[in-house]
Amino acid sequence: MDKAVITNKLTKKFGDFVATNEITFDVAQGEIFGFLGANGAGKTTAIRMLCGLLKPTSGDARIAGFDVYRQTEQIKQVIGYMSQKFSLYEDLTVRENIRFYGGIYGLNRADLKAKSDQIIEQLNLGSVADKLVASLPLGWKQRLAFSVALVHNPRIVFLDEPTGGVDPITRRQFWDMIYEAADRGTTIFVTTHYMDEAEYCNRVSIMVDGRIKALDTPSGLKRSFGTDSMDGVFQILARGTSTK
């Protein structure tokens, strides 16, 4: 089983509105896959279906082999999720957050202890392990949130605009963590508004009005659209998107 995500004509309608329109693509295990699109292009709806949170109207999708209609609970066990908006409990400490998420995913007492120590050491958070998350700088929170999203060793992790608002060095440190996780075999499914980050992905898809308009490596996309940056590709594809 070498595909983390397989979709076939995956579609979601809300009344007359087709939010996600017959998208077909797959993502290899260990791949860093960039999922781009303008605001309102249908990315969030697609991600919610892939996470087993929203039933598709038609089409198929499998996440690590599990069916998005019937096996949503299994899907939740094999995925991790992190977004800029919600990830950690601010009024729990660093250690409590790790134990909370680990506990939810059913880690036993020994594993929880080992995992907590490992994350705290890796992120160099020893001095703040018993401090409330609310008191940490944003960049630290984001790196902790990413580690927590990986606490149950998921096959695939969904990152929804993970790097918003952080300084340029912290943003790159975050991508170092993404590369390391991918190198260990975790599939990364990431959305971003930073076009330089699109370059860091193995392959990138660009959604426009509910459809996938392009899907290729960053260099392949730049070649096809005759431009020297991912921003250029994005501007060509996403301009003229309806702004309803």
Partner: peptide
């Protein structure tokens, strides 16, 4: 322009 896509930002 925070959180806004690259086209709308431009």
């Amino acid at each position: 322009t925070t959180g806004v896509d690259a086209v709308s930002r431009k």
